[in-house]
């Protein structure tokens, strides 16, 4: 009897993970694409040395942090893959999601300070929540942190946020107040 209950629970969780998890993932990717499009006017690079120093109006560090967990189905699929070896597709999409989300959050911060460029973008990951699941089941989660230096230019090559966006267009001489480092997470 216990075995049957355990099997049914696992089955339900698998189906739930597969459907809801898959839905969540697709929705997230769609959302990411929209946000990336909206923020595509900000140029990003990972170069250390900033060029065109004469036109710089302000600079500050911006960052984005996200922790994303995967669903039950994918966790199972990954542990199976761990036995067989090979490419872990589901883990790969999880990391991609987290990395893109962290970058989007970083860009949001850059946008609020009116920056047109972000230099020296780096990514780091942590693992505070590893093996959250009970009975040693490995719940996969990705913890990504992105940071970089946002630069506001003085030469009229300012950000022009796409129509419909609330972001302020700074006049060339008075950049808007720059946000605190690591402000609350947007949309959390």
């Amino acid at each position: 009897m216990d075995l049957i209950i355990a099997l049914i629970t696992t089955g339900v969780l698998l189906v739930l993970g597969f459907t809801v998890g898959g839905l969540n993932e697709r929705r997230h990717f769609k959302q990411l694409q929209l946000q990336e499009q909206a923020l595509s006017h900000i140029r990003v690079n990972n170069l250390k040395t900033v060029t065109d120093l004469q036109t710089i109006a302000a600079c500050a560090m911006v960052s984005g942090q996200v922790v994303i967990g995967t669903d039950y189905f994918k966790s199972m699929a990954t542990s199976l893959r761990g036995l067989l070896g090979g490419e872990m597709k589901s883990a790969q999409t999880l990391m991609t999601r987290a990395r893109r989300e962290a970058l989007v959050r970083l860009l949001h911060q850059a946008q609020t300070m009116g920056a047109a460029e972000v230099w020296n973008v780096r990514f780091a990951s942590s693992n505070i929540g590893q093996s959250t699941g009970k009975k040693g089941s490995r719940a996969m989660q990705a913890e990504l942190f992105a940071w970089g230096t946002a630069i506001v230019r003085d030469n009229g090559v300012q950000v022009t946020p796409p129509p419909g966006q609330a972001a302020s267009t700074p006049s060339s001489r008075t950049p808007p107040p720059v946000p605190v480092v690591l402000p609350p997470i947007p949309g959390a």
């Binding site: 922790v67 994303i68 967990g69 505070i128 942190f145 480092v181 690591l182």
Partner: peptide
């Protein structure tokens, strides 16, 4: 942990951990 454990069934952002890490990172800075 409990919230994250539930979220790990269906997938998605674990906002509790995100806040925790953001807060900690701010502290370090």
């Amino acid at each position: 942990d409990i919230a994250a454990g539930l979220k790990n069934l269906v997938g998605g952002e674990l906002t509790g951990y995100t806040e925790l890490l953001t807060e900690a990172r701010r502290e370090a800075v």
